[in-house]
Design a protein around this nucleic acid. Structure first.
Lengths: 133, 133
DNA sequence: TTGAATGCAAAGCATTTGCATTATC
DNA sequence: GATAATGCAAATGCTTTGCATTCAA
């Protein structure tokens, strides 16, 4: 169980569990998500530890922040390209969506039209999954 | 000075200024933005009043919430179609962007690929405006 | 041993709620 | 005069900070 999610110079129990949790996560996780998942695996950690893990992960380029616009920061393991999600408003299921090529086109157009140099974008979809329609 | 932004049954000084502020706003405004704009016009109001105005505006369908993913809720006057923005990360300038047709195509595709019924989306762009490159 | 990592408590910040007061209709 | 709207204080929820303690290297 060697996660590729590693940063910092000392390996601790908390970091090991957190990394494992992200490796097997099906959707972006908040600090609270990480803590409850860790608790389920028998590891109690303080919320500060989780917040620091997430912050360091982002700064190490290993985690990326995902914003669903509900005031809660969620994170996912960054494997290669950044991607987008479709979130079920009823059961919170999250499905990844690869729309890179379409977005690149859209971003190019947005840049041309506004004169901005686009650096970053926020693109997420919300709706109902098959089971929740 | 008759704003089309009206809701509730009694017109007060605070509501009048807030409505005027939204009428002449160039970009989405937060509660703090609204309050400082009101102060500049000589009207001191409590933050609770601003939050309630924004909430009622959304529920009346007159204001729509804009999410830039920074933990601050911003609002804009809803005239007709919902649109998107390009935000300058340096000077906070906001430019509107009409990409409805492209988005409709993207949403249709996302729905087909994931099996979700897409109800809502979060699409905003961030970068540097011409002056801030 | 040493300082990176942790835990706990307290602080920050945007937002919300409870309740008495004010002022519009 | 009824009650919608306001203002103030306190509470909420997520996140961050300060600081003493612990533990991996």
């Amino acid at each position: 169980m060697s996660s590729c999610l590693r940063f910092g110079s000392r390996m601790t129990k908390a970091k090991r569990v957190f990394a494992d949790i992200f490796d097997s996560a099906a959707s972006p996780l908040s600090a609270a998500d990480v803590l409850s998942a860790a608790a389920k695996r028998g590891v109690r950690a303080d919320k500060t530890t989780a917040y620091r893990f997430l912050d360091r992960g982002v700064r190490a380029g290993e985690l990326s922040e995902v914003e669903f616009g509900d005031g809660i920061k969620r994170y996912e393991h960054t494997h290669g390209a950044h991607h987008h999600h479709v979130v079920c408003v009823s059961c919170d299921a999250v499905v990844e969506l690869d729309i890179e090529s379409q977005l690149q086109r859209l971003i190019r157009e947005a840049g041309v039209r506004t004169g901005f140099t686009i650096e970053r974008h926020l693109v997420e979809f919300f709706g109902r999954c098959k089971a929740c329609v």
